[in-house]
Amino acid sequence: MRPVRKKEGNRLTAIMQVRNEENRFLEKVLQSLTDVVDDMVIVDDNSTDRTVELCKSFSKVKEVVELKESSFHEEWVLRSRLWKEVCKYEPDWILSIDADEMFEENVQEEIRSLINQDQFDWVAFRMYDFWGSTTHYREDEHWNLHKRHSKMLVRHLPGFPYYYLQQEHHVHRIPFSYNALWGSLSDVRVKHFGWAGSMDERRKKYERYKQIDPEGKWGSLVQYESILDPNPNLVEWRNRE
């Protein structure tokens, strides 16, 4: 038997769910992850473009699980599936990241020091919503995810139960049972490019949100509306010294 927490030699596996990401940020994201993690497990949610092919072209991608029927409208099913898929490899740490998210540059060593310890079992990061470009992020009353910390990186603990809230949309990426464990809040920043595309793309996303969640059951309607704000407050991203 080996200990459930190791102070060194931890293997880090990224997990990601993808769907038609070919022409978005996927390649950049996979490239950046290649520097940070040891391997990746990806669940493809019935993509119709070359997403799967692109994923498989990265050597650190250990497996792409291809779903033939989309679970897009049942996000928690997708999240649970992804979790189950990665657990079969018994990784030491799991990084749950989306196809439009990237760590800021030069954090490889920091990430290693965050996992090579036996004090805490999850790490949360600040996530910045880039808006209309990859140079500025949005900051106002509806867009301030970066003021909080989001759990993304967790230790895989054998036998520890995992539950996802059975929600269709906006499901936490980490099983909520991890709330029972000790964690750490990191200063490392994560860039989210989900809104970094054109106004057109954002409008499409807005429409999809309104369609999935017309009553604001899984999110806030005011926030959905603010997507269309013509003059959002944008702040220029600065790299760390």
């Binding site: 038997m1 080996r2 200990p3 459930v4 054998p158 036998g159």
Partner: peptide, 29 residues
């Protein structure tokens, strides 16, 4: 026993329990 020791390990966050956990692993191995 494996599950039990793993569960103990998850719980072992104090220095005292970490020490016991180490002993448990040694005995098991």
């Amino acid at each position: 026993l494996v599950e039990a020791i793993n569960s103990f390990g998850i719980l072992a966050v104090t220095d005292e329990n970490k020490q016991i956990y180490e002993c448990l692993l040694n005995e098991y191995n």
